[in-house]
Nucleic acid binder design. Structure first.
Length: 849
RNA sequence: GGGCGCUUAGCUCAGUUGGCUAGAGCAUCUCGUUUACACCGAGAGGGUCGGGGGUUCGAGUCCCUCAGCGCCCACCA
């Protein structure tokens, strides 16, 4: 078959993928030792970004490799309804049309978003195919599939029955922009400069005033107490008395609470239970009223008339002005403090009181933490293990309700006559239920997406329902971004243990962020986003995979390198041309057969590839993908192309070329699936699919012959080195020798070193080659020879230095006694070699002078 | 405030349990169209592994310390 000179990935990749899919190559075979990776589901509504390309490559490499190793390997794809993310996008389209979301029911909105997602859906699935991800498409799970919802409801019910679910009025992180509460994890804390104001509150029972410090003066209208530390002598006499709340006619008490830090500000604090988590706590202890002064839409309520309806920012200014007018503002200073921001809109998060569903996290976190400490899950990189343990230790109860329609409805109903009477019921399509003469109203909130996605491993494998893939649980590797260790990985472990009694995965492999080429975080607003599909259309999928994997280690954020992708593309082309050459040599009539090594080069390449087979296997198995990629690259480019193919130009061994190509394609396949399969399909000697091939077997070779080829390589390299130094008009390109090894391999040396002749002689002339210690001379004019003297002297000096170093080392009694024997022997051999080399150099210099 | 990581060639980065002369890709320089490949071949130069100290026969690797950068987590007003 005639192949084009240059490999054009676009011409082959889609067809190759279609062929795999048609042959059902990615489905579970149903027998054999299970190996399973579940894909972190990409947003069904979105496009893949470069992080998906990296994660997808790692996942696919693992699955393809283990499939080749004979396991029943399955890669389960998924699609995420991405509750909040998608909702934000959809709500924006509503806003653009000037439509208020509150003019629709939950059902209406849900079905609108469903249609919206349906239009986009499939994009990312096509993109995964372009990436080469060998997913079992029939097993794809969408996060709103019935089986997901059923399982999520079961989990919720079980938690409810176990007393892990409670509903309560708490301070929640509230996004006034999106009008929903958040989990703690969705709040971005930023350290920033702010102002701390001192405000005087006139005493009511005595003459005088108490000065409080606050960063949020606008919330003062919600104050229901002033608090000081019980041991604070300054305020001891005031505890129990009352103050006038400025700008109002309310009177509030001064209380003492341990939570107050006397060192901070004036040591006296205004207590606003409705708008601050600490104050809420204090409020509970002291039975204080909660007065909400910021509404859920972010504007002021229950405040003096002039302030009603203002934004928080405006209200702050106005309050300060009013206080200043009344001469109650006593100080203002700059401080650094952390402010919570909405991770989506970038606006400040308002702590507001809202009734929400919570999970009592402690028992779940304890168990998960213990499993992690016990080493039930392997972490790559290992340092993330401690991050997670620390996270579990400080985790607080988890708010799982969201006030958005795009998500899984919370299956709970409230008795309209008794607000505390909540029942679990799956009939979420019903707005009202009548049970035993009581009327129950539906909860309108939906679940936090992490609550459902936290159950992903056992849902996708149908573990609880004992489906065909259930033996794949716990899954082997959870490969995901290091940035969602807390949000997702931690949840999967907690809920996995809770529902199945087992950790959901044996290994967690976390990749870092792919930064732009300058090391900056990619973001749409910066315009520095690299679209993986662009890279694929320019350089090919394999090139992108290899480029992303190269020089990248687990957990580290690293820059994207186009150079690496180009190097990957070049590698694919190299492989292509190796195939062209071999196919041309071997001919169309050839059939796969057992290799029969004949020449030293044959034995040597077997040794090299045998070693590569083992190295790559162990590198993949220990998740050192960059190193595996390098081994593949150099084994194929350096050993196969530069040495073996060159050597084979002198004597062709078809069975060996056949084996070398088969083996090269197999070891490269997990990393570069497309080009390897494409080539495989052009081969005349079989009609199978590479994707189904097994990992290459090592074959036997002659150690001595292989070693002799190494010596020839050294000789050839030395000849090349000397010749490139010489000007063209002083080169005869003739090698004289008196040496059995060279005699046997004269032709191959001539070919590889591009010599005009290699002759046996007793009358050698020219430059004696010294590195290998062979009896060999390169014929060059006496004049040039003299110039080489300094060259030889320099080399001799270097060798002397090496000898000295080795002698010192071997002269060290401690070294000889304590270092491993192997090393000592190696040093001794090295010393012998160097000494012999020095002798030859000295002799050569004598001849020259 | 707590935790974690990074600093290695001009650039971007590898470097498992300490093991000898520290690697890669790109870039640079020289030469070269030879039976696949210029997305190529042959060869070369370039590093006191952030500074300092320690442990060890031996440190890029382990410990201490200093400096610079970054990330994650966290209800302090």
């Amino acid at each position: 078959m005639k192949l084009a000179k240059i490999y054009d990935p676009n011409q082959y990749e889609p067809n190759v993928y279609a062929m795999w899919e048609k042959s059902n190559a990615f489905a579970s075979k149903g027998k054999g030792e299970p190996y399973c990776i579940v894909m972190p589901p990409p947003n069904a509504n979105g496009n893949l970004h470069i992080g998906h390309a990296l994660g997808g490559s790692v996942q696919d490499i693992l699955v393809r490799y283990w499939r080749m190793r004979g396991k029943d390997a399955v890669y389960i794809p998924g699609a995420d309804h991405a509750g909040f993310e998608t909702w934000v996008v959809y709500e924006r389209t509503l806003t653009e049309k000037g439509i208020d979301r509150f003019s629709f029911s939950r059902e209406q909105l849900y079905s609108q978003v469903w249609d919206f997602v349906e239009q986009q859906r499939g994009n990312m699935e096509l993109q995964l195919r372009a990436l080469g991800s060998g997913c079992s498409w029939n097993d794809l799970v969408f996060t709103l599939d019935n089986k997901v919802i059923d399982t999520v409801y079961d989990t919720f019910k079980k938690m409810w029955d176990d007393g892990l679910i409670y509903r309560g009025e708490r301070i929640v992180n509230y996004s006034t922009k999106y009008q929903t509460s958040y989990a703690d994890i969705e709040v971005n804390h930023k350290l920033e400069k702010g102002k701390l104001w001192d405000i005087a509150y006139p005493l009511y029972d005595k003459i005088g005033e108490i000065v409080v410090s606050t960063t949020r003066p606008e919330t003062m209208f919600g104050d229901t107490a002033i608090a000081v530390h019980p041991d604070d002598k300054r305020y001891k006499d005031l505890v129990g008395t009352r103050v006038m709340l400025p700008l109002t006619d309310r009177v509030i008490p001064i209380i003492a609470d341990e939570l107050i830090d006397p060192e901070f500000g004036t040591g006296a604090v205004k207590v606003t239970p409705a708008h601050d988590p600490n104050d809420f706590e204090i409020g509970q202890r002291h039975n204080l009223d909660r007065i909400q002064v910021i509404d859920f839409n972010g504007t002021m309520i229950n405040v003096p008339d002039k302030l009603v309806g203002m934004t928080v920012e405006d209200a702050r200014e106005m309050t300060l002005t009013l206080l200043r007018n009344d001469e109650l503002l006593r100080g203002e200073k700059e401080i650094e403090h952390t402010v919570g921001y909405d991770y989506k809109s970038g606006l400040p998060i308002q702590p507001l009181i809202k009734e929400q569903w919570f999970i009592k996290v402690k028992p779940l976190a304890e168990r998960a933490k213990q499993a992690v400490i016990d080493g039930q899950i392997k972490f790559i990189p290992e340092s993330k293990k401690n991050n997670l343990i620390r996270y579990y230790e400080q985790l607080r109860d988890w708010n799982i309700s969201r006030q958005i329609p795009w998500g899984i409805p919370i299956p709970a109903f409230q008795n309209i006559d008794d607000p505390n009477d909540w029942i679990f019921d799956r009939r979420v399509d019903e707005k009202v239920l009548n049970i035993d003469g009581k009327t129950y109203k539906r909860e309108e909130d939906t679940f936090d997406t992490w609550f459902s996605s936290g159950q992903w491993p056992f849902i996708t494998t149908d573990y609880l329902t004992d489906g065909p893939l259930s033996k794949h649980y716990p899954i082997d590797v959870m490969e995901t971004g290091a940035d969602i260790l807390s949000a997702w990985v931690s949840r999967m472990i907690m809920i996995g243990l809770y529902r199945t009694g087992q950790v959901p995965f044996k290994t967690v492999y976390l990749h870092g962020l792919v930064l732009d080429e300058k090391g900056q975080k990619m973001s749409k607003s910066k315009g520095n986003v690299i679209n993986p599909m662009d890279a694929i259309s320019k350089y090919g999928s394999d090139a992108l995979r290899m480029g992303l994997i190269a020089s990248r280690s687990a957990g580290q954020n690293q820059a994207f390198s186009l150079d690496r992708v180009i190097a990957g593309r070049n590698f694919c082309n190299k492989l292509w041309n190796i195939a062209r050459f071999i196919e041309d040599k071997v001919g169309d009539g050839f059939r796969d057969k057992i290799p029969e090594p004949v020449t030293m080069a044959d034995h040597w390449i077997i040794k090299q590839l045998d070693e590569a087979i083992d190295s790559i296997a162990s590198q993949i198995e220990t998740y050192r993908f960059a190193e595996a990629g390098e081994t593949i690259y150099h084994s194929i480019w350096d050993d196969v192309a530069d040495w073996y193919i060159e050597a084979s130009k002198h004597s062709t061994n078809k069975s060996m070329l056949n084996w070398v190509l088969n083996t090269s394609l197999k070891i490269a396949h997990p990393f570069a699936p497309f080009v390897t399969e494409t080539i495989w399909q052009t081969l005349a000697w079989h009609d199978s699919l590479l994707v189904n091939a097994s990992w290459p077997e090592k074959i036997a070779y002659d150690e001595i012959a292989a070693a002799e080829f190494s010596r020839l390589k050294t000789l050839v390299t030395e000849i090349r080195f000397v010749l490139t130094e010489l000007p063209g008009n002083e080169r005869y390109d003739l090698l004289y020798f008196k040496d059995a090894l060279i005699e046997d391999n004269a032709k191959i040396i001539q070919t590889m070193a591009k010599l005009k002749g290699v002759q046996s002689t007793d009358n050698a002339r020219g430059l004696r080659l010294t590195v290998t210690g062979r009896e060999a001379w390169l014929d060059i004019p006496p004049k040039t020879l003299a110039e080489h003297q300094s060259n030889l002297e320099m080399r001799l000096a270097e060798v002397h230095k090496d000898i000295q170093m080795l002698e010192t080392r071997l002269g060290n009694r401690h070294y000889v006694e304590k270092a491993p024997k192997r090393l000592v022997e190696e040093s001794q051999n090295e010393l012998k070699n160097k000494q012999a080399l020095a002798e030859r150099l000295v002799k050569e210099l004598e001849i020259l002078t």
